[in-house]
């Protein structure tokens, strides 16, 4: 599979998730167990109207989706994934009017668990808005002969 094909499949995966779609999430890049997603700034995502800062909950949603996408892109090819837990640390408020980017990496995968870390930023990746750490389930495709 070419990188472009993989990115296209990832974008289809994201677009099939209604909540990710309603937040306008886009796939920027996809690797082997890693993903970069973006979410445009929008008035309805604002949590602090005085400064136009995107709500932390929307940042969490982006990082959660990015984490799940990273798991799905892993070479072990899990059939599905769900978040077990996710911790988000908020470093600084997001800049009003700027899109948020998130990079997630599935740095370890066992038979049933994927360990993920993620980073979110506006313009400069070295000045993160938030970091995240979490565990996701790694659902295995049913083997031949398995009854469903």
């Amino acid at each position: 599979m070419t990188p472009d094909e993989k990115k296209k499949i990832a974008q289809q995966f994201i677009s099939a998730l209604p909540f990710a779609k309603s937040l306008g999430m886009q796939v920027e890049d996809i690797g082997d167990g890693s993903a970069i997603l973006s979410m445009p700034w929008a008035e309805h995502l604002v949590g602090d109207p005085r400064r136009g800062v995107i709500h932390g909950g929307a940042v969490s949603a982006l990082m959660d989706t990015c984490g799940g996408t990273a798991v799905m892109s892993h070479s072990d090819m899990p059939a599905g994934t769900a978040t077990i837990d996710l911790r988000i640390d908020y470093m600084r408020p997001a800049t009003a009017g700027e899109p948020i980017h998130a990079r997630a990496e599935c740095y370890h995968m066992t038979r049933s668990v994927a360990f993920v870390r993620a980073l979110a930023w506006n313009l400069d990746e070295s000045r993160p808005i938030a970091t995240a750490n979490g565990a996701f389930t790694a659902e295995r495709p049913s083997k031949k002969g398995d009854t469903v």
Partner: peptide, 21 residues
């Protein structure tokens, strides 16, 4: 619009996280 996996269907983890936060 709060759905994550439309096959199950289930609420999106991000929607749940937003709700809690």
């Amino acid at each position: 619009k709060l759905i994550g996996n439309p096959m199950l269907p289930a609420l999106h983890g991000g929607a749940t996280a937003s709700f809690l936060e």
